[in-house]
């Protein structure tokens, strides 16, 4: 019965999340737009699917993947694992190499499973007439999150100020914006915000807090934050970079084709 109890508690959470949204939609539809909604039964079924789907999704994550992932974050940051015993008086940032690998892998894997990102990628694919690939976009975003989480772990371990990384990141994003294809810019900015929701946040937060509470000289209250910020900034760069690479590749191919034609 424990299972059922959990499911209903997750259903409650999801409903609480949906209720204000539904209230806003219904109010504006009834009192401002005052038009009949096309295909209402199908729409309501869709909403039902979303609510039950999210509840099952959360239930499964909490049952299987979150406990193991959170425990893993704790064990990997434990001095007993990293230094085969007690922590030495001073540690070098490179002693934590498993953390960087884990941060990279878990950042990539949770982002690929993020439902909000799936939604945005599908919409982008539809409106671009297939020019923006669903999987290509999602993998580009996931690479950005992976690099971001690794670098964020490095920042917690070295204790360097968060704002310098973020400001440097902003400069890179703005420089990329100047040269990237116009079509991708808005979507790239959006991909920063969608990466961190249901799957990524709990695992990454556990990693940050575990790291900040075991690295000598760090405190979880002061240094445990910032991973989410990294995970929302780096996908912007990776998506812009992906588009720049794709454009460069296509240009190169067309230049080559031109040359071949001229040679004939």
């Amino acid at each position: 019965m424990n299972w059922l109890e959990h499911f209903f508690s997750d259903l409650g959470t999801t409903l609480r999340d949906v209720l204000p949204i539904a209230a806003v939609l219904v109010f504006f539809q009834l009192f401002v737009l005052r038009r009949r909604v096309a295909n209402l039964p199908r729409l309501l079924t869709g909403f039902g699917f979303v609510i039950i789907g999210m509840a099952l999704f959360l239930q499964g994550l909490e049952q299987a993947l979150f406990p193991l992932g959170k425990l893993m974050a704790q064990q990997l940051t434990d001095p007993g694992f990293l230094f085969a015993g007690a922590a030495p008086a001073s540690t070098h940032w490179s002693d934590y190499y498993w953390i960087y690998v884990f941060g990279f892998a878990i950042g990539f894997a949770t982002t690929v499973a993020e439902p909000a990102l799936i939604a945005v990628a599908r919409k982008a694919n539809q409106v671009s007439g297939g020019a923006i690939g669903v999987l290509g976009l999602r993998y580009a975003v996931a690479m950005g999150v992976a690099v971001g989480i690794s670098l964020g772990c490095f920042r917690i371990i070295t204790g360097t100020p968060l704002q310098w990384y973020i400001i440097a990141g902003y400069v890179v994003v703005l420089l990329q914006t100047l040269t990237a294809p116009k079509m991708i810019v808005a979507l790239a900015y959006d991909s920063g915000g969608v990466t961190t929701s249901t799957v990524t946040v709990p695992l990454v937060t556990a990693l940050g807090l575990g790291l900040a509470s075991t690295v000598p000289g760090r405190s979880p209250v002061m240094d445990g934050f910032g991973l989410i910020a990294f995970a929302s900034l780096f996908p912007i760069m990776s998506v812009l970079g992906y588009a720049q690479l794709a454009e460069w590749w296509i240009n190169r191919k067309s230049v080559k084709a031109q040359e071949n034609e001229n040679a004939l």
Partner: peptide
């Protein structure tokens, strides 16, 4: 294993509901 099955089922329903409910409205 049951957890992974639930997550798979949940994601499947969500994606389906997306196209039927959230996007159209």
């Amino acid at each position: 294993l049951t957890g992974v099955a639930l997550v798979t089922l949940g994601l499947t329903l969500f994606v389906q509901g997306l196209e039927m409910g959230l996007f159209p409205i």
